[in-house]
């Protein structure tokens, strides 16, 4: 644009005064000084937000992984109860039902529980030292279904009730449905928290950017003076915010990963206690798979990108107001 594009002689001729030109670069100062941006607060905010987001995502991943594990385990099993009926020998009924189930295609393993084993199952509710002879305790038979096959449940039911009218077949479907809806609720709650965290991040970053622009208004004006366009000016600021966003993201995500890494051993200390067992039941082993850690890292990068984007948006909006 300026006439320096065309060849020309020196503007000033210093004659013998001409200085030796040093070889070293002299443009060392950044155009927007780093110290002029209140960076530490922003790094802290982004770090906290990334940490919260990582914990949320990690928990959702753990819950859905252990729920899926449960479901596949439970779905591959059916339970048959044979209830005692007046005038019938329950041991014989149980044996006949077990035979009938074995004959069904798709069943790979049948395990009838003996009287003593059935009593053991009831022990947590009824206490030990109970004589089963006094109680009409149903007999339980667990059958394992060939994975990948869909069992003809109606046929099985027919066959079972033929040999023992008091027997009932349970494929745990209702229970699985409940599990599924609980997992779904956890995922939705997680997504809700993530959305809130991201909105809070955008708001904080916009405030920080506006503050930095206000503090550096004289610089922006001078840059306008020397003919710098808004894009050039915005990029001077943006590189700071990108760095701050990445710093915060790395800190927050790193701490969250450590939490997940150590939680396994922490869970170990609590195992055996009721609380520890509850959490273990809900979250499985606490250990994220490698792909889970990868998801957390990707999320941290995403938050850094959101930081840069929010900052950029605010920069251009603010630059429109400054002349």
């Amino acid at each position: 644009m300026s006439r320096t594009d065309q060849p020309h002689g020196p503007l000033v001729d210093l004659g013998r005064e001409r200085p030796q030109v040093p070889a070293r670069a002299r443009n060392l100062s950044p155009i927007v000084p780093r110290a002029s941006i209140a960076g530490r607060a922003l790094v802290a905010v982004v770090a906290i937000m990334t940490f919260l987001a990582s914990i949320t995502t990690g928990t959702v991943l753990l819950v859905s992984a252990s729920a899926a594990e449960w479901q596949s385990e439970v779905a591959s099993e059916i339970t048959i109860q044979v209830r005692p009926a007046p005038g019938r020998d329950i041991d014989r009924d149980a044996a006949a039902v077990a035979e009938a189930i074995r004959a069904q295609t798709g069943i790979v393993e049948v395990r009838p529980f003996t009287r003593e084993e059935s009593a053991k199952l009831l022990e947590p509710w009824l206490g030990s030292g109970l004589s089963l002879d006094d109680l009409p305790v149903p007999r339980v038979i667990v059958a394992r279904v060939q994975p990948g096959t869909t069992l003809d449940l109606a046929a099985l039911r027919r066959r079972v009730t033929q040999v023992a009218a008091s027997a009932s077949v349970d494929d745990h479907r209702a229970w699985i449905e409940r599990m599924r809806s609980m997992t779904g609720a956890t995922v939705i709650a997680g997504l809700g928290i993530l959305a809130l965290v991201i909105i809070a991040t955008i708001i904080s970053v916009s405030f920080a950017t506006r503050g930095a622009m206000a503090a550096n208004r004289p610089i922006v004006e001078v840059l306008h003076f020397v003919g710098a366009g808004d894009r050039y000016i915005a990029n001077r600021f943006l590189r700071h915010f990108l760095r701050l966003g990445l710093q915060g993201g790395v800190i927050g995500c790193g701490v969250a990963m450590l939490v997940f890494g150590f939680s396994e051993s922490i869970a170990g200390w609590f195992s055996g206690t009721p609380v520890g067992d509850q959490f273990a039941a809900l979250l499985g082993t606490f250990s994220l798979r490698p792909s889970g850690y990868l998801a957390l890292a990707a999320q941290a990068v995403l938050i850094a990108a959101i930081t840069a984007w929010a900052s950029r948006r605010t920069l251009f909006a603010t630059l429109d107001d400054i002349d």
């Binding site: 002299r26 443009n27 100062s29 004289p218 840059l223 020397v226 003919g227």
Partner: peptide, 16 residues
């Protein structure tokens, strides 16, 4: 610009 040397200030139109 107070955070830049005299040289950098004068070179600014080229730099941008």
């Amino acid at each position: 610009l107070d955070h830049m040397t005299t040289y950098e200030n004068v070179a600014l139109p080229f730099r941008v």
